[in-house]
């Protein structure tokens, strides 16, 4: 039963990442909707741990790429090396050839290196030396970035932000969670002991189940109303694209599945909207506004149909 699997996933993740159930659920929903995830937060709040946990839970091959400012595209996608014995170039796949890639601190790399990864995310294949190399299936990128007002970073442009299904942030743990964290065992050890929750093939079942979650006409009306409002109302300089609408629906389906339902509710849309739309909306005017404020305003402006 997909619903039981989903519950097991949430529970297992919650044992390692304390007090962050909502963010963990969003991350899981993002994966079940087959989207890439961007985690934006200050260092040290557990971004990397979250990526590790997801990989372990879902039983995926895991590779971590630490982005640095001197990084080259070849460091990500791989390099062709001349083989003396064969007398020919041979392609050595880079770390991107993995089911789950953690792109740590993606905004530290130059735009050139960033775009190498982002192209891989979009195409789900690598083109090198006139040949294409398919990436493993499934293929997820979890990128983390420090908030872009820190020194020595290259913020991702809007077109590339759009490739991430969700952008979430973790934030500080609350008091009780932090206490448990401090008092408890080392997270690394816990992680090492964490068994894979999913059997081989179960992930595909979950993907299929997420796609089949029912989204009735009222839900589609609601999504359209939200999209229309973001485009027409003053207060947004950039409305939501059709792709954002698809992303919203796919994420809400996965969210509903995690909640154990076979149909999407407006609550599901509202739950994923900040993560899905937050990095796609731009406020009108010059004053920067927190993404949460923008999405909150969007939700509260559109009545349920």
């Amino acid at each position: 039963m997909p619903i039981h699997i989903a519950n097991r996933l949430v529970a297992a993740a919650g044992r390692i990442i304390l007090g962050k159930e909502h963010a963990v659920r969003l991350a899981l929903a993002c994966v079940l909707a087959r989207g890439h995830l961007l985690i934006e937060d200050i260092p040290g709040v557990g971004k990397t741990t979250l990526a590790h946990v997801l990989a372990r839970l879902l039983g995926l091959q895991f590779q971590r790429i630490q982005f640095t400012s001197d990084m080259l595209p070849a460091d990500i996608v791989g390099v062709s090396v001349f083989d003396q014995r064969d007398g020919a170039f041979r392609f050595h796949p880079g770390p991107v050839f993995s089911q789950l890639v953690l792109a740590d601190e993606i905004n530290r790399a130059t735009p050139k290196a960033q775009s190498a990864l982002l192209e891989a995310m979009e195409e789900r294949q690598i083109s090198a030396e006139g040949r294409t190399w398919p990436l493993p299936e499934p293929f997820f990128v979890i990128a983390t970035q420090n908030p872009s007002d820190q020194i020595g970073t290259f913020a991702l442009p809007e077109s590339q932000l759009d490739r991430f299904l969700m952008r979430i942030s973790l934030g500080y743990p609350d008091r009780a969670a932090e206490r448990a964290l401090l008092a408890g065992e080392d997270r690394r050890e816990l992680l090492a002991q964490l068994p894979a929750v999913l059997q081989p093939g179960e992930l595909e079942t979950l993907f299929a189940a997420a796609r089949q979650v029912h989204a009735g006409p009222r839900i589609l009306d609601y999504v359209q109303a939200l999209l229309a409002h973001s485009r027409e109302a003053s207060g947004f300089s950039l409305g939501l694209s059709p792709r954002a609408g698809l992303a919203l629906l796919a994420a809400a389906r996965a969210w509903a599945l995690l909640a154990g339902r076979d149909h999407v509710l407006p609550e599901d849309i509202q739950a994923v909207l900040p993560a899905v739309a937050g990095h796609r909306l731009r406020p009108a005017g010059d004053a920067p506004q927190p993404a949460d404020t923008l999405t909150r305003r969007l939700i509260e402006a559109v009545a349920l149909p």
Partner: peptide
């Protein structure tokens, strides 16, 4: 109920 509020919320 707020106009935007879903039933479960």
């Amino acid at each position: 109920r707020a106009t935007w509020e879903g039933p479960l919320d």
